[in-house]
């Protein structure tokens, strides 16, 4: 029986949650998985929870959307935290941007990783890297795709003219992975 990752990435517009999802999707395809990406659009995006649903699976994707049963949730802000924490499947992972979300997950059937991505991005000298640092943590823990595949996907999602940004993004992925390792259960 193959593994199906159901991933929700959520946050404010501008935090890079949509592109985080696209990188996972593209990297999944590069790794030979079945994949899909669905954005929330319209009124559900209002109120601070831009989000996308990603499936990376060993078997063909049927329904590309899922209301519950999330295996990996990335919550980059407080509205997303409130919206998505209850929807994560038992045994699933929740990655919280603890730089701006001060609440703790009140569930003991899920694995929670608090990653202060804004602070870590500032350490790297580029505040835009928060989504990539988070992605590094996610794939370190949940092993959804290969780290190198994310970097290959990077040029597909953002265009070949962004090749000069690969080194700093590689660093950001490593940073996220490194912090996640210390939190590993």
């Amino acid at each position: 029986m193959g593994k199906t990752h159901k991933i929700s990435c959520a946050g404010f517009g501008g935090q890079g949650v949509m592109s985080m999802g696209q990188l996972l999707t593209y990297a999944g395809m590069i790794d030979g998985k079945e994949v899909s990406w669905v954005p929330a659009y319209g009124p559900e995006m209002r109120g601070g929870t831009a989000n996308c649903s990603v499936i990376v699976s060993d078997t063909p994707v049927g329904s590309p959307i899922f209301e519950t049963g999330i295996t990996t949730a990335v919550v980059m802000n407080l509205p997303s935290f409130h919206k998505f924490v209850p929807k994560v499947a038992s045994g699933g992972s929740i990655f919280v941007n603890s730089s701006i979300v001060n609440e703790k997950v009140d569930r003991d059937d899920v694995n929670v990783y608090y990653i202060p991505v804004n602070d870590l991005a500032n350490e790297l000298g580029n505040a835009k890297l928060i989504n990539i640092i988070m992605l590094g943590a996610v794939i370190e823990i949940d092993k959804i795709v290969e780290s190198e595949s994310i970097l290959k996907a990077f040029l597909k999602v953002f265009g070949d003219n962004k090749a000069k940004l690969i080194p700093i993004n590689r660093e950001a992925l490593a940073k996220g992975a490194e912090v996640a390792k210390t939190l590993k259960k």
Binding site: Q22, T25, S36, P39, P64
Partner: peptide, 10 residues
């Protein structure tokens, strides 16, 4: 429909 229009797939 809107889902097929908005979603990304290989």
């Amino acid at each position: 429909d809107g889902l097929i229009g908005q979603m990304m797939e290989p």
